[in-house]
Nucleic acid binder design. Structure first.
Lengths: 339, 339
DNA sequence: TGTTAACACGAAACCGTTTTCGTTATATTT
DNA sequence: AAATATAACGAAAACGGTTTCGTGTTAACA
């Protein structure tokens, strides 16, 4: 076991001072060509690499970014992480992932853990519990300490920071209009409770499209699930009673499960009933029939978030100016609607 | 913006020395009750939290663990990360995630980035390119430096370290036997090239089961995909020509896609043709019909890996003894086979 | 020959902790 | 009253770097 070599080791071995070694390795003009060559050769031979922690302490920069998300076993979040990781890595940053598991307390604990020097900034999406409680003090504390924060997807207006979202309202609006254009008359919405910022926006888009059409809104055609867990019975009853000819779902799972239910009843998709979901994951692609979805471009979102954060981290200026980037959703047409 | 407060700040404010503050906060017996109370009250008031980086430098312990995996957009890896994160967090560790994207070079770069003090140990699964090249010098260098490594799922015997795998051979063996027991005669295997350790083991289990039966092995019933990308045409041709009555697939996607193909031809699942896949992800659960799979228990695997790593990190002893934990796979029966 | 500039290098502070080892007072013992 | 013990605290080194500011040597110049 050969332990890592330090500047001190090199200095002792070559009988020069630590400062000389440090400068020589940085190719400083102060050091003679001769000494530089000796030091560099020695360093290369023993595979010297500066200790990241020491540099972090000196620079007060860790080159780590903290990502706090509710869940990692959701395709959307996974793609966001990938986008963050790719971009951050390219700029020399590492990504520390923490899961809040939709819990307010865990979100707070995770942030506290990281906020004491471990990271240069946060990228996060709020837990459902946090959105439900509307308690954002942990976020405010962090921003007040001067740690930059980028909020994505599940955001709040109560915190001053950069934000990245997709235009959920527009996505739902376009999807609903697609149904209307295709002559659908009984358009249902399966969503979750409104405290989730995204569900709220999607519901709004759905309503807007119906209001603008001559169909109008039938409140009973909206099914609100109390949580994100799927209540299979609720969906079954809803579909049987309401007999919609088109269904917009706020995620893939609601949609794919619903499709199976109506297929078992002998209905034809998309002739008798059409479906559009949110999130362009594996499920949509390989479902039978494949599911038309509003794609959220998670990877792009991750990239954009990471860029915003790192730019802020590396900017000396202490501008207190924050922006919200709104990404355009796109409708990925597959076999669950006519085309 | 109120900047973080340091020991030095408290010391100056209270007109004591830094060492006194440090000891007072640790409730040292050396310090008088009176001083301790003053210091602690002041620290609480200004919400003092020790700087993690400084502590890391002092202790030569970061309480970070590095996770290097090929891809995060695969359900299995995602569940492993969740298992790691949960367990590590409970023991006060953070998780730095790096993606190799199946590239040898990225794997090397990521490890080098982290190996200079950023982490206390690695948990990793090899990229396909690494397994293909059989070049493990980056792993050996790290272990020689005394940094503990735990390899999971995609492992190699050429590196001395702890390992966690599921018994892929057993899983495939049991799945194949299930087909045999149900009277299937033409049992196909759709897999990837053998350089992936898991595919190799699964193929072995498939062969073993067939050899032990009176069916014997028909090499043409094995379809090897050159990469993990799905070659839709190859699968289609294979299924049409070979007309198997049962198919074992090394992942979900191959299976779900194959199911759709044979359904389009009018075959009934599982009567005409049955399917079993690997990985118990969303796809299997919501496919139509739902897919029977060999569950890999990713979360458990992550937990076990994290426990092994942290135990080693925290053990003072420098025992050079490594173990390989083999987790039992379980068959999750769903509608793609008779039951 | 004395002054000065350039060169090559080292000492030391600093980042924020922890910890060992003094060093004072004050209290106790003989 | 002298010796010793104890309580309460501070100085300083250490972790591994970076960086500022000397400092000594040599060469060039007046």
């Amino acid at each position: 076991m050969k332990a890592k070599i330090t500047l001190k080791d090199i200095a002792r071995e070559l009988e020069v001072s630590i400062s000389t070694v440090s400068k020589a390795l940085k190719n400083s003009e102060e050091i003679s060509r001769d000494t530089k060559e000796r030091v560099q050769a020695f360093a290369k031979l023993y595979n010297y690499k500066p200790n990241n922690i020491a540099i972090s302490l000196k620079n007060k920069r860790t080159k780590n970014i903290g990502v706090v998300i509710p869940d990692i076993v959701h395709h959307f979040f996974t793609t966001v992480i990938r986008g963050i990781e790719k971009y951050a890595n390219a700029r020399g940053y590492n990504v520390i992932v923490c899961l809040s598991e939709e819990s307010f307390d865990k979100e707070v604990i995770n942030m506290e853990m990281l906020a004491n020097g471990s990271i240069d900034g946060f990228i996060m999406s709020l837990s459902s519990e946090t959105q439900e409680k509307s308690d954002y003090n942990h976020l405010k504390e962090v921003t007040e300490q001067g740690i930059p924060v980028v909020l994505f997807d599940r955001i709040t207006n109560e915190v001053d920071c950069d934000k990245v979202i997709i235009d959920d309202e527009l996505g739902a609006y376009q999807a609903t209009n697609k149904f209307i254009d295709q002559g659908k008359k009984k358009i249902a919405l399966i969503t979750t409770d409104d405290y989730l910022s995204v569900s709220k926006a999607r519901t709004k888009g759905y309503r807007k499209a119906l209001e603008e059409s001559n169909l109008g809104i039938d409140e009973s055609m909206i099914l609100k699930m109390p949580s994100m867990e799927m209540d299979e019975m609720a969906i079954k009853t809803f579909l049987n009673e309401k007999e919609p000819d088109a269904v917009l779902c706020v995620n893939e799972i609601f949609a794919v499960y619903s499709m199976r239910l109506v297929q078992e009843k002998g209905l034809k998709i998309p002739e008798d009933i059409a479906f559009i979901g949110f999130t362009d994951g594996v499920l949509s692609k390989y479902a039978n029939p494949s599911l038309t979805v509003v794609a959220q471009h998670g990877e792009k979102m991750g990239e954009v978030s990471a860029k915003m954060l790192i730019d802020k981290v590396e900017s000396e200026a202490e501008e207190e100016t924050y922006q919200t980037k709104i990404l355009e959703p796109t409708l990925v047409i597959r076999d669950s609607i006519a085309h």
